[in-house]
Structures are given as structure tokens and as C-alpha cells.
């Protein structure tokens, strides 16, 4: 089959056409870079996404610390990761890159903080 994809790797949003069947990808066209081709290969076999969200933070100058997976994970787990973030509370201070959940859902990616949260000055 032939299908057009929109690449989400960068803002160029390349329209990439791929010709493939269940066994193999025959032809990829329209990607301006290698990452785009890689994205399409995954998109056909196992679509990957970076999860972004937030986790409650106690005693911080922000009530929430924003988080992301440090690697893209299979798209089908995104909602489950969101569920995990709703159950968690972390304690300030938090640094950018600090691991909030390691190897989240066993998908070989850590959920890490993306905001610096200082301890609240009372």
C-alpha cells in the first residue's frame, strides 16, 4: 500500500510517501533528512512519541514540575504514562533532567523533569 505521512521530527513537517506491505517497506519519498526516513520506518512498524506532561510538586515555587520521557516510547503507552503522572507527587527542589520515574513502564526511557523547581521560601 501507499500512504502519505506527516513527519513530526522537526517543524519542516515533511510529507513523506511510503510504499509498503506487511513484510517490508519498498520505497520512501519526500523526507528532507535521514531522521525523517527513520521516523517513517517506525511509524509503519511501531509509532514512537515523546510523552510530555506534569507531576505534582510539594513545597516548590511551582505547584507542578513538567516532565517528558527522555526518549520516544511506543505511542500505545502514552495514555498509560499520563495515568502514572497523575498518581505521583515529588518534593522540591527539582532540577532539569532529574529522573522522576526510571524505565517508565519498562519502555527503556526515563521520565525526567523539564522544569527547575526551587524549594518554596516561606
Amino acid at each position: 500500500m501507499k500512504k502519505e505521512f506527516i513527519c513530526i521530527v522537526c517543524p519542516n513537517s515533511c510529507r513523506i510517501t511510503a510504499e509498503y506491505n506487511e513484510q517490508q517497506i519498498k520505497h520512501i519519498e519526500g523526507a528532507q533528512c535521514k531522521k525523517g526516513e527513520e521516523f517513517i520506518k517506525n511509524e509503519i512498524k511501531n509509532p514512537l512519541r515523546t510523552f510530555v506532561g506534569s507531576v505534582k510538586c510539594r513545597n516548590g515555587d511551582y505547584q507542578l514540575v513538567s516532565v517528558k520521557t527522555n526518549k520516544p516510547i511506543p505511542k500505545k503507552y502514552i495514555k498509560q504514562v499520563a495515568q502514572k503522572t497523575h498518581e505521583l507527587v515529588v518534593e522540591a527542589p527539582v532540577e532539569i533532567g532529574q529522573v522522576i520515574i526510571s524505565d517508565v513502564l519498562g519502555q527503556h526511557a526515563d521520565l525526567v523533569a523539564t522544569r527547575k523547581v526551587r524549594k518554596k521560601v516561606l
Binding site: 505521512f5 506527516i6 517543524p11 510529507r15
Partner: peptide, 8 residues
């Protein structure tokens, strides 16, 4: 919006 955002 950007096409990538319609997608993701």
C-alpha cells in the same frame, strides 16, 4: 497550525 501538530 503546523502540520506536525495536526498529526501528533
Amino acid at each position: 497550525g503546523l502540520p506536525r501538530n495536526f498529526n501528533q
